Simulated assay, not measured.
Amino acid sequence: EIMTRETMQYCLNAIQESDVSKVDITGGAPEMNPHFRWFVEEISKLGRRSIVRSNLTILTVNSKYRQLPQFFADHRAIMVSSLPCYTAENTDKQRGSGVFDRSIEALHMLNAVGYGQEGADLELHLVYNPVGAFLPPPQEKLKGDYQRVLKEQFGIVFNDLYCITNLPISRFLEYLLRLGQYEEYMQTLVDAFNPAAAAGGMCRNTVAVGWEGTLYDCDFNQMLELKMERGAPGHIRDFDIHKLKNRKIALNQHCYGCTAGAGSTCGGEIIK
C-alpha cells in the first residue's frame, strides 16, 4: 500500500487550486515512500506546510533516515510524533522493547536542528493515546507532566501534546472484544457526548486521501473503508472544493470517540 507519484501529483493539483494551507502526511512510516521527499519539496514550492506524522524510530534506522531531521527543518515541516508515555516501561509495553530509547534518540536529533526550541519556527508535537478503555486525561495537565519529565531526565523540549481518544476500530476494537469491554467503552463514549466537540470535528474541515487516491471524511473512516457519501468526489483526481464543502459526512458509531468529553482530532483536544 504505497501511494504512487501520480496520485501525489493529483494531491498537489488539488492543493494548488484550493486554499489548503497544511498537508498532513501519515501512514505509519510515510518516510519510507520512495517519493516522500519529492512530495514534501513540492508542497513547499506551493507555499504550503507539511505535517509529518512520524513514529520517531524510523529516524534512527540508518544514515538515509538520519538525514531527515535536517530535511524537515529545511522545509519547515511540522513534526507530530507518537510517544505513549514519558517512561520507558510504559512505552515499551505498548510499542515494543527498545522503542522508548530509540524515540528519545530521535527527539534529540530533532531538537538538535531546532525543533521544539524557543523562538524557532519548527514545531514538534507529541501524541498520547490512553493505554486502556478510558478517555484521555486533560491535555494541558498531561502536557506539563511530559514537558517536565522529558526536560529533566533527557533534556528534550517540544511544543505541544495531543491527547487523542482511542476509537473502537481496528486493533483497539479487537482489544475491547477480547477483554469483553466493548459495550462498556461504547457507553462511556456515548455518555460523554459533547455537541460542542462535534462542531469542531476534523471531518468538518479535512479530507483524508487513501494510498490509492480514494477520498474519505477522516482517516478513521479510511481505516474502515467507509467512503464518502454519494455526490462527493470519490477520488482525489476529481477534487471539487465546492462539492466537498457541501457534502454529507459519513457517520458510524466510532464517531462517538471524536465527540466525547473535550473532543478528539488529529490535533488533540477540540475544546481547550
Score class of each variant (00 low, 15 high):
C11N: 06
A14N: 11
I15E: 12
S18V: 12
A29C: 06
I43P: 01
L56R: 09
S63C: 00
K64W: 01
R66E: 11
P69H: 07
Q70V: 07
R76I: 03
A77G: 08
I78T: 04
V80F: 00
N90I: 00
Q94R: 15
R102V: 01
I104W: 05
E105A: 13
A106P: 00
E118H: 09
E118F: 08
A120T: 08
L122T: 05
L124Q: 11
V127C: 10
V131A: 15
A133H: 14
K141Q: 14
G144Q: 14
G155H: 02
V157N: 05
I164Q: 15
T165W: 04
L173I: 02
L173M: 11
L179M: 10
G180H: 09
Y182A: 15
Y185A: 11
M186F: 12
A197T: 08
A197Y: 06
M202A: 10
T206M: 14
A208N: 06
V209S: 09
W211A: 13
E212I: 03
D217M: 07
N221W: 02
M223D: 02
L224A: 01
P233K: 14
I241N: 02
K248M: 03
I249P: 00
L251D: 03
Y256C: 02
C258H: 07
C258D: 08
S264T: 15
C266F: 06
I270N: 13
I271V: 14
K272G: 12
